[in-house]
Design a protein around this nucleic acid. Structure first.
Lengths: 271, 271
DNA sequence: CTGACTTTGTGCACACGTTCACAAGCGGTA
DNA sequence: TACCGCTTGTGAACGTGTGCACAAAGTCAG
């Protein structure tokens, strides 16, 4: 658990579109930088995820020719409450006009900027089974900006076979290929036992963001960002709600039986 | 938006294991059931999701022949801090032995009970495209307890074709088939425009839990539980972190430049 | 039986995220 | 120009979830 950060890799920079040209240089290695943390961390993780949703909704509105939206409209379409929406938007700046609303195009631009969508993020998919196939075939991946540029698998029979227009590479070439193609996001769609090893290889190839579909808790150095999509967990959470619902129903049934017994109850009883 | 609950269906109960026989007691009140809510809702959503993870880790340990685990070990394997793990487990009861740890089999049983995994949950997949194919082929779905019992699509050419050993049905039969097979979880893997309509049909077929893979915000009555898996959002959140990292690097660079200028900075700077 | 050691279960404080409610600000109108 | 109605942006209250730290409770050795 003890710190143990470090493990810097050679920072394979090569100026990746002039997001900021003069950056990157020295690396003073800082354990805590309050100010930097403050400014960038100001926007909560949960809000970031919602911004992505707002962005999608806004794109839809733009295609329908909408010029402006109020927080109320946008919130309804995104399935959140309007106060939360306004607060989320306030994290990225003040781009609304009081009494009017938000200009759709402006909002889209600003959210894209904050989410870093002005830059292309090259994606590699590892594990070309059922799921990997599906992911590779999404083609360009949901929304533009995330081109799939590499596919990997262990199975020699798969190597060279084009999937979604891209030939599968052998997993042993992962480091080389990821560097060459400047992969910034790795997607793990392998069977569970292979996941950690694949993850390690991706990390040592310089990939700093990983999307993990394997039902495994990945161990990574803390400069690497992992998000996981776990089908089993999702289903089990739903299962829990089914069970909870059944319990509640039991309670309600009993309560209603009791009230039918003649005693008045203090709540509304629906017929 | 206004309340509008109701829409009860025949509550296909079949006693779901005697969770607690004598409990439950008083509580009239229908529109809100404080105590029932309290007891069942006592366990936070975030904790439920983690319990599913603990369960998986525990199963792995059981196969490796472990008899007991300490909170420390289990926490490390699950990637959380041990205090949180103990608190999560305390939500479901006290099944540990001080000075020793938890008995693996006991913990597995209890978590399964809480998550409602003692009952089978029949799953229907709607939309047999790339993703739907992948989901159908998971076969039995991650971990047992979630048998896929129906597949649906609009495409007439697909109807009757077996996928993962199960023939695809036409989507118009969704209500009938879901009722017949007592589907409790619906999985939406259709293109975005179809998602809401499919969702509505599932709901009117009595399905109360939905797992949504379509990048759409679903509108459902509030007795229906929806969880969504949104690839685009996941990728965009990762993209945000890439951007943030770049920003931080820039700030660090600036800070270091300043400190090199002779002035101390307000953070700790390690070599 | 006693005492040393280990690990659970939880009270408490803190941080984060959500919601409320309202002042500030803008456009339209007379 | 002055007023009115509408919508944003945000300070503050609230609730939930997280992490710390320790008493309680068990095991084991002698």
């Amino acid at each position: 658990m003890a710190a143990q950060r470090g493990q810097r890799n050679g920072v394979g920079v090569t100026p990746p579109a002039p997001t900021a040209a003069e950056i990157t240089t020295p690396i003073p290695r800082v354990t805590e930088v309050p100010a930097a943390r403050e400014r960038a961390r100001a926007i909560p993780e949960a809000a970031v995820a919602r911004l992505a949703v707002y962005l999608r909704v806004l794109s839809g509105m733009q295609e329908h020719g909408a010029g402006t939206v109020s927080s109320e409209e946008l919130a309804a379409a995104a399935g959140v409450n309007s106060a939360k929406l306004r607060k989320d938007l306030s994290y990225i700046g003040s781009y609304g006009t009081r009494g009017v609303g938000y200009e759709v195009t402006v909002l889209i631009e600003e959210i894209e900027r904050i989410l870093g969508l002005t830059r292309k993020h090259s994606v590699a998919v590892v594990g070309i089974g059922n799921l990997g196939h599906a992911l590779a075939n999404y083609g360009g991946f949901p929304g533009r900006g995330f081109p799939v540029t590499a596919l990997f698998d262990v199975d020699p029979d798969l190597v060279g076979v084009p999937v979604g227009g891209l030939p599968v590479e052998h997993i042993d070439d992962i480091t080389r290929v990821c560097s060459e193609r400047e992969v910034s996001i790795g997607v793990i769609a392998t069977p569970p036992p292979a996941a950690q090893s694949v993850c390690d290889r991706l990390v040592s190839a310089g990939v700093q963001c990983i999307l993990n579909f394997a039902p495994v808790v990945l161990q990574v150095p803390d400069h690497v960002e992992v998000r996981k999509v776990d089908l089993a967990v999702e289903l089990q959470v739903l299962s829990f709600h089914v069970a909870r619902r059944a319990d509640n129903a039991a309670v309600l049934a009993e309560a209603s039986a009791r009230s039918a017994n003649g005693r008045a109850v203090d709540g509304l009883v629906v017929s």
